[in-house]
Design a protein around this nucleic acid. Structure first.
Length: 723
DNA sequence: ATAGGGCTATCT
DNA sequence: AGATAGCCCTAT
């Protein structure tokens, strides 16, 4: 698909802003953020939107329940009234010119002189239906080309809820009627709106506008915007011709049939969208009439343009839907027929699946909630070194949006490419494959709100089914995969932070202890350093694990513990790293306890054998007492340990090595060693490698030729005669 | 690969 | 603190 025109993009913003402004309970801050986030909007755009926003400004200024102004109609004779035929923009402008900002913000007495309330009531009652609502109506009506969007906009079951809310707070403005943006009193449809807005507005927290006073700074801000030629009320015009917003009207043409049916009282409105008039005087390029009945084939170009535009501007519904494309396992009661591949017949009398339950909120991981969670976590762990997780997540968030866009583009292009008559084609309703447009045995996407229908054969790859056997269309499957990926990533990230916190906390706890120890011990390894090193090693391990874990093993050694196998890996620089080393090192039964408290702790026998930790060595020691003494071959320990060698500690002191765990020699090993020496040694030379091979069945795993040599040396020390 | 010195954890 | 076993390092 080609790029959406700039006007289409702008139009999307205008629609959203207008739509949200029509809800009294949508907080002003949301609108403001939205307006700020919106692209530059030409002055001749968005007349209806500006009108709606201006009305909201007026309502916020004068209908607030907490300033008492709204209900104060007692001194009407002293007040300035307004001509009901004036636009909200004009009125707002007039008020702003005569009232100080501070007074407005305070809801002060200056406001009392305006008898704006009847005007607001009138405007609210006469405000034309928003463009978005018209889209919705058109879709719901089903006679419009855009009716094919019905499935994807989740409007099927929402037609009695999405209608614009007329103001009902003029008389009491009871706070209880306010639905807070972060509250729980949303209908699913409203949640969509909230999500939409939050997405568009970047989910910023609005400073200073979250509680009871929020309207005042907002009103101030907005008013200032208005005074500075902002898109909202910047362009005041009273000419009837200018009342027709060119772009918006282009849509009005599109949905005029819908309006004619739905708009009863609105038609009497003398300003705003002029729904009742035929939009023939537009001079924009979107202005061709596309009425359901009146559309001619030669208007097809215009139709397609609008179709395209609609597709773009309803994309966010798709995106939302895509974001909800998740298994219904979480909340949906298994309904009959959903437990397996859902095939539908091509017969047109069986198209009721369009109204099948579409569980909403089946996914908790939309951007809105995730961001909140992340923020909280950030607040808790902001002292940790930051990991740039958000970037990648954002990338996939965007990717998810892209999925929605791609899907909508795909659908609209499919529609257009096959649209050869006036008949409204809705593949879902008519059980036609979205790919080939034919009927037959079709797969219906089982994602929450998606009803994409296609042949199995029309899928390039084999269809994707979830564990319940529900089919997932490629769009939803991809979106679902992204969701799962983000969830897993979030989980890993969280766990990592917790681990880091855990380690750092422990470090603090023991730092004092080890400060003492540092002074009493000779120079050299510091346990605190060891802890840091362990942490570093762990983090390095994560890096290794995240990229490439397989490394060359220069020594070809493989150690094996009785409990399981542990493989020694050595990287190209000669550094041996045992992946499992890290895990063990962070086991409190291992290094933690022993290493940090060993000075006065009694190490039990089992600890000695099983729990002997491998110490990270800084190895600057110069105090090397020589070794001499007797042999002690009585050890029967058969536990073997892993290697952790690092030969470049001189260069990277932050990552010192660990020593292997001591593996006492068994009597049997010694015997074999002696045998091997007798067998292979000649003229003072000891082919330890051969001896190792000779006794490989007996020698402990991990034993090296050097170990044999060392052991033999010890044996010779203890009984020189045997040499 | 081997030899030998050195280091360190652990035991006494 | 000394002794010791096992591991490490380096020179050859």
């Amino acid at each position: 698909m080609d790029d959406p025109s700039g006007s289409a993009t702008t139009l999307a913003w205008l629609w959203v802003i207008e739509y949200l402004a029509s809800f009294p309970h949508i907080e002003h801050s949301i609108l403001r953020e939205l307006i700020e986030a919106a692209p530059e909007i030409p002055d001749d755009f968005g007349k209806n939107t500006r009108e709606m926003v201006a009305l909201r400004c007026l309502e916020d200024l004068f209908c607030r329940s907490d300033n008492g102004v709204a209900n104060d109609v007692t001194s009407k004779e002293l007040k300035v009234t307004f001509d009901l035929s004036e636009s909200c923009e004009d009125v707002l402008q007039s008020i702003l010119q005569e009232t100080t900002v501070s007074d407005l913000n305070r809801g002060g007495p200056e406001l009392l002189k305006w008898d704006i309330h009847p005007f607001i009531m009138h405007k609210r009652a006469c405000m034309p239906k928003c463009a978005l609502e018209k889209v919705k109506d058109a879709i719901l009506e089903g006679f419009h080309p855009y009716a094919s969007l019905k499935e994807y906009s989740e409007l099927v079951n929402a037609n009695d809820r999405g209608n614009r809310i007329t103001t009902d707070y003029g008389d009491d403005g009871a706070p209880g009627k306010t639905i807070h943006i972060t509250g729980t009193r949303y209908t699913p449809r409203e949640r969509e709106v909230v999500w939409l807005v939050k997405s568009l507005a970047g989910d910023h927290e609005d400073q200073g506008c979250v509680d009871g006073d929020h309207l005042q700074p907002q009103a101030k801000r907005f008013k200032e915007d208005a005074l500075h030629d902002n898109l909202c009320v910047g362009q005041i015009s009273t000419s009837p011709a200018q009342h027709k917003d060119l772009v918006e009207d282009s849509f009005e043409m599109v949905v005029e049939d819908s309006e004619n049916r739905d708009f009863h009282s609105e038609k009497e409105s003398s300003q705003g969208g002029l729904e009742g008039s035929r939009p023939v005087e537009n001079d924009h390029d979107e202005d061709a009439g596309i009425g359901r009945h009146g559309r001619s084939l030669d208007a097809d170009n215009e139709f397609q343009h609008n179709q395209h535009e609609i597709a773009h501007n309803v994309n966010y519904s798709f995106v939302d839907e895509i974001n909800h494309a998740a298994p219904r396992k979480s909340n949906a009661a298994p309904s009959a027929g959903t437990s397996d591949k859902l095939f539908i017949n091509g017969s047109k009398d069986n198209s009721d699946h369009s109204g099948r339950p579409k569980p909403s909120n089946s996914v908790s991981s939309n951007g809105f909630h995730r961001n909140t969670d992340d923020d909280e976590r950030e607040a808790i762990t902001n002292h940790l070194s930051e990991e740039d997780e958000s970037n990648e997540s954002d990338e996939y968030e965007h990717e998810r949006v892209d999925v929605g866009l791609k899907k909508s583009h795909f659908l609209s292009s499919q529609y257009m490419s096959r649209h050869d008559s006036l008949a409204e084609v809705n593949w879902t309703d008519q059980n036609l494959c979205v790919k080939c447009g034919k009927d037959g045995q079709l797969l219906v996407c089982g994602a929450g709100s998606c009803s994409l229908v296609t042949h199995e054969n029309c899928l390039v790859f084999s269809p994707h089914f979830d564990e319940r056997g529900d089919f997932y269309c490629p769009f939803c499957a991809y979106s679902l995969a992204i969701s799962e990926y983000l969830e897993a990533k979030k989980k890993a990230y969280s766990a990592r932070k917790e681990l880091k916190l855990f380690i750092e906390t422990r470090q603090e706890y023991q730092s004092n202890k080890h400060t003492q120890r540092l002074h009493s011990k000779r120079h050299g390894s510091s346990s605190q350093n060891e802890d840091e090193d362990l942490l570093n090693k762990f983090l390095d391990y994560e890096n290794l694990a995240g990229t490439k874990r397989i490394q060359s093993n220069n020594r070809g050694q493989i150690s094996e513990e009785k409990e399981g196998e542990e493989v020694v890996r050595e990287n190209s620089s000669g550094t041996e790293l045992d992946i499992n080393q890290h895990q063990v090192s962070f086991d409190p039964n291992y290094s933690d306890g022993n290493q940090l408290c060993k000075e006065k702790e009694n190490v039990s026998g089992s600890q000695r054998t099983d729990g002997q930790r491998r110490k990270a060595v800084c190895a600057i020691s110069s105090d090397g007492g020589d070794i001499s003494g007797d042999e002690d071959d009585k050890s029967i320990t058969t536990n073997y340990f892993i290697r952790f060698r690092k030969r470049e500690r001189q260069y990277t002191p932050a990552m010192p090595q660990s020593r292997r765990k001591k593996v006492p020699w068994t009597a049997h090993e010694e015997e074999i060693l002696k045998e091997g020496v007798q067998k292979f040694a000649s003229d003072g030379k000891h082919p330890w490698k051969d001896i190792l091979e000779y006794g490989s069945s007996v020698f402990a795993n991990g034993r090296t030729a050097i170990d044999l040599k060392d052991k033999w040396r010890n044996l010779c020390k203890s009984s020189p005669k045997s040499k």
